[in-house]
Structures are given as structure tokens and as C-alpha cells.
Nucleic acid binder design. Structure first.
Lengths: 161, 161
DNA sequence: ATTGATGCAAAAAATTTGCATCTGG
DNA sequence: CCAGATGCAAATTTTTTGCATCAAT
């Protein structure tokens, strides 16, 4: 897994070099953190993760935002509007595209991939004369775990509604 | 069409009465405007539309936001995160659900509906133990009109990026 | 009358920007 | 050295809230 991170980081580094962006300490830390988690994270979450890894870090939130922008443009991460609060990100480089199911009550996010759905999306874009760049399917619902009182995600976050 | 608006307004009014909300002048104007357009609108857009209809209106933006919230909860309108800028709304009452294709360059939004897609969504939610409440599929791309220089939407808005 | 709705201003939350300074190439 | 990156603070943008007042029921 550390190896995976190394590879992904290397890829980002290569991309940066390629497009003439500099490889700096803050960017290193940001990328390491972004690829070091499999959770969805906000800009602020990521900053906390960076600080957890290196309490001495001087990385500033503004730099996180700026770097996330670059990473998104380079298709290394993907932003996800969850409706409430800030945009969440996840690393996507080397991952197959997937869609999201979001529990409106506890905030839990499940991921799934469906080839049939993908072809339908392609077709729709074509039919309407669009060149598809990306797509985002989000299903909002209530997770049954929650109804059953067995939702650990809820326990962790403890939101109401 | 005026008749349609009347009916929709009546439905909203009935719903308000039902759940014990008052029917006020500001709400009347907001609902009329929301159902009087077939475009997607932001809270601010809507306020402009209200002022266009009645320059004397005293409706305040905060009230627009508050009312949009109520309307969304009542399933009369639906919010749409377009990633950049404010949330857009569209009235949905009496309309079949549809998905969106959004041009990242000119902002044009196309709507489509695909039964197959709908069943796949249903299935996915079920498979993951969710009770689906709503869903949002957005396909982002570049519209070919734009590439061909024939995109009127672009001419109207004239954005870059 | 009572309770909810509104206008207004001010706060909040999330993100972006200007600028002096630092630093990688 | 020099363009680009960063920290920091301040500005923006979008949405929400507190509160005195107003109006629907």
C-alpha cells in the first residue's frame, strides 16, 4: 500500500513536471495525504490529515485549495458536491469510475459501478450532441442500517437531519 | 399555460395549508415566479424574476431562500448543484423525473429521461440496502454546437473557461 | 390575539484573491 | 536569478440566522 502511494505520487509528480508546475513541499504533503486515505475528504479534512502526519507542517488551507484545483484538472482527484457543507474529494487516479449512494441522514457514502449504467450515460451524451467529459450519479436515500439502529456511521458522526 | 401555473400554485397553496404554513404575498410571488419559468434558476435569479413581474415587490432574498427550502421539502422544486456558483432550482411538480447534461463551457443544460437508467438506479439502491429518496445524474461535457461555433447559449452568456 | 412570516442587517461558511516573500529549477 | 508557489489576511460569494415588526388565521 505504501508502494501504491509512492507510485501515485510519482505519477502526479511526473504530470506536474510535464505541465511545468513545480514540485514543492506543500504539494508533496497534500498529495501524500490525498492518496493516503480512502475516505472522501474536504479541503479542511485534508489539512487535518496533513497536520496529523506532520504536526510541524506549515501548509495553509489556501494552498490546499489551490493544489486540489490542480489535481482535479489533472484528473487525479474528483470533487463531489454532497449538497450540504463543503465539496468532498476522493482520489481517482488508477481507479475505475464509480457512482455514489449517499445516506441523507447519516452521511454514509457507498460506491458502486455498473457497466450498463455507463453505456447508457455514453449513449445519452451522444444523443444530445455532447462530448462527455465526466459524469456524476448520486443516489440519495436513507440507509436501512440507520432505520435498524445499527448504523455505525451515524454513531461516529451523530448528526440529526 | 397560465392555467397550468394556476393549478400548480393551487397545489402548493393546498400543501401549505395542509402542513399549517401560511399563505403570504411573498410566498405567492415566489411560487408564481418559480412555476412561471422553465429555466433553471438560482435564488437570486428568482428574485430578479419577481422584480421583473412586480417592480414594487418588497420580497427579500432571505425570504426567497426560506421559501425555496420549504418548496424543496414539499417536492415542488428540486435543487441542482452545478459545481460552480450557486445552487440552481427547477420546478418538478407534475413533471417526470429527468437527468441533466451540462456543458462545462457554455453552461447549457439539457434534460433527458431514460427508463432503463431509472431501473438501474432503483436496483443499485436496493442492493446496497438504501431506501432511495431521490437521485441526481449529471453528465458534464462539451456541447458540439459550441465546438461548431453555433451555440446560442454561449452567445447569450458569453463565459470563458 | 397568537404564532408564524418577513425584512433587514449581521453572521457564518466555504472558497478565492492580492500581495509581499520565499524557493525550486 | 526569476517565474511560479506560498502564507497570510482580507475579500468574495452564497446562504443562514437573530430579532423586532408585521400579518395570517
Amino acid at each position: 500500500m505504501e508502494e501504491r502511494i509512492r507510485n501515485e505520487t510519482e505519477a502526479v509528480k511526473a504530470h506536474f513536471r510535464e505541465v511545468g508546475l513545480r514540485w514543492t513541499r506543500p504539494r508533496q504533503e497534500i498529495v501524500d495525504a490525498a492518496f493516503g486515505t480512502h475516505e472522501h475528504f474536504s479541503a479542511e479534512d485534508l489539512l487535518h490529515m496533513i497536520r496529523a502526519r506532520n504536526p510541524e507542517t506549515g501548509v495553509h488551507l489556501a494552498t490546499v485549495y489551490r493544489t486540489l484545483q490542480v489535481l482535479e484538472e489533472g484528473d487525479f482527484i474528483e470533487g463531489l458536491d454532497v449538497g450540504k457543507g463543503s465539496r468532498l474529494f476522493e482520489h481517482t487516479f488508477g481507479h475505475e469510475h464509480h457512482d455514489h449512494i449517499i445516506c441523507e441522514d447519516c452521511g454514509r457514502i457507498c460506491e458502486f459501478h455498473d457497466e450498463n449504467m455507463e453505456s447508457l450515460k455514453d449513449r445519452a451524451a451522444q444523443d444530445f450532441g455532447f462530448t462527455m467529459k465526466r459524469h456524476s450519479l448520486r443516489i440519495y436515500g436513507a440507509c436501512n442500517d440507520l432505520a435498524a439502529g445499527a448504523c455505525e456511521h451515524f454513531a461516529r458522526r451523530g448528526r440529526s437531519s
